[in-house]
Design a binder for these strands. Sequence first.
DNA 1: CGATAATTGTTGAAGCCTAAAGTATTTTCA
DNA 2: TGAAAATACTTTAGGCTTCAACAATTATCG
Lengths: 183, 183
Amino acid sequence: MGENAPDREIPGRETMVLDAETRAQERPHDHQDELRLWLRLLTCTTLIEGEIRTRLRACFDVTLPRFDLMAQLEKMPEGMTLGELSRRMMVSNGNITGLVEKLAELGLLQRIPHPTDRRAAMVRLTEAGHRSFADMAVEHAEWISNLFAGLGEAEVAQLMRLLGRVKQSVHAATEERKVRAGE
Amino acid sequence: MGENAPDREIPGRETMVLDAETRAQERPHDHQDELRLWLRLLTCTTLIEGEIRTRLRACFDVTLPRFDLMAQLEKMPEGMTLGELSRRMMVSNGNITGLVEKLAELGLLQRIPHPTDRRAAMVRLTEAGHRSFADMAVEHAEWISNLFAGLGEAEVAQLMRLLGRVKQSVHAATEERKVRAGE
DNA sequence: CGATAATTGTTGAAGCCTAAAGTATTTTCA
DNA sequence: TGAAAATACTTTAGGCTTCAACAATTATCG
C-alpha cells in the first residue's frame, strides 16, 4: 500500500451540523490528515508483517497465521475453544477451523472434548507444539525488537499510548455504526 | 554479542543501521515492550482494515485490494506499469496480474502499450473507472475520518511523526538484513 | 557484436480469508 | 415443558496472496 492517499479534492460534506463554510473556516483541513495517517499505519504494519512472514517461512517453515494461533494457545496451557481463538485472533470462525485442522495434522495441537458443551471444540498445544513454539518465539521476539530498534523507550511508550487511543476511537465509531444498523 | 561491544565508543554519529544495531545489542531488554507495541499496531490495522473492507463490500460491492489499485491509478491519470503498481502497493507481481485482470473485465481499467519497453504493460483507469472511484473515494475518506474522530489534531500529528520513525526503523533493519543475506 | 545478466510480466500450486448457508447443541422464556 | 432463539462449529464458493518457475525483452559489458 503506497504512502499516498487518493489526493482528490473532496468537498467537505461530513456532518450536517456545521455548514461547509463554517467548517472550512474552522478547520482548513478536510479528511486528508486522517487519510494519510491511515495509509502510514497500514504501511508500517504491512512492512513488518511481510518481514516477519518471510523470516518465519525461511527459518521455521511456518506461516504467520499458524504461528499466531500457536501463540494464543501458548498463553492458555489448559486449552481454548475455537470460538475463543477466533475472537482473540480477530478472524472468522471458518478460518480457525482450517488452521486448527492443519496444525493438528502436523501434531502441534490436539483437540480435547469440552467438559460441559458438546457443541464446542477445545484445542491445546501438544508437547511438540510447545517445544516448536518456544524455539520460534525467541527468534520472533528478537526480530520484532530489532525492527523497532530505531525507536527510544519514550517513543515506544508514546506510540503505545496513542495506538491505545486509536483503538478506543475505532471501537467507538464501529459500535456506533453497529447500533445504528440494528445490532 | 557481548554486554560491552567494542564499537560502542563512537556515539550516534554513525549510520542509522549501526545505531539501531548497537542499541538493540547493548540493552539487555526482554523485548516485551516492542512485542506489545507490535501487537497493538497490528490490532489497530486489523480493526480498521476489516471495517473498511466490510463497508466497501456492502456499499459498493468492491474489495479492498481493487479499491487500493484504483486509488493508485487515480493518482497517475496517464497510466502506470504493473511493476510500478506492485511496488507502490507492496504486493507481489503475480498478485497485480490477477487484480488487473479482474478490473479490466469489469471495464474499470484498460491496458495500453508501453511506448518504449515491449516487456512492460501499462494500465490506466477508464472513464467508468474514474467515475466509480470518485464515488467510492468520498465515502471512504469519510469513513476513515470517522474512525479516527476520537483523536485530536495534535494526536494525529504526533502519530504521523512516530509512525514515520517506525518506518525508518523498519527500513533500516530490513536493509541491513538484505545486505547481510547478499542482496 | 554477442553472451550474460537483469527486468517485466505471467502462470500454477499452496495457503489464507471472508461471507453465507448449514448442522448440532444449548439457552431462553412463554 | 417445548418452541424459538442463540451459540459453536463446519462447509463451500469466491477472492486474495505469496513463492517459485518461466518466457520475453532489454541492458550490460568484454
